[in-house]
């Protein structure tokens, strides 16, 4: 098999793979609605809307607050 043929096979199976993966991903997103932290995907849009520094994060980085204090003391 020469390189062109290999490329052609590689290309075909890649497209097939992507079609399967992407469609199952879409199915997964719409079926589950929530990610494994239990946050509804659509809630993440609030990151743009409630973006003052005092606003409550949609999904907080845990153990971040302790680290912050360390930074400030520098």
């Amino acid at each position: 098999m020469d390189i062109a043929q290999l490329q052609a096979y590689g290309y075909f199976f890649l497209v097939l793979f992507l079609v399967v993966v992407l469609y199952s991903y879409i199915y997964h997103l719409y079926k589950n609605r929530k990610d494994h932290d239990g946050v509804d995907y659509e809630k993440y849009s609030n990151m743009a809307l409630n973006d003052d520094i005092t606003d409550k994060p949609v999904n907080k980085v845990s153990d971040k607050e302790t680290k912050k204090v360390g930074d400030k003391n520098e």
Binding site: D37, V39, Y44, M47, A48, P57, V58, N59, K60, V61, S62, K64, K68, D71
Partner: peptide, 9 residues
Amino acid sequence: MRREKSLYI
């Protein structure tokens, strides 16, 4: 150093 765990779009 972010406070928001997830990255916005």
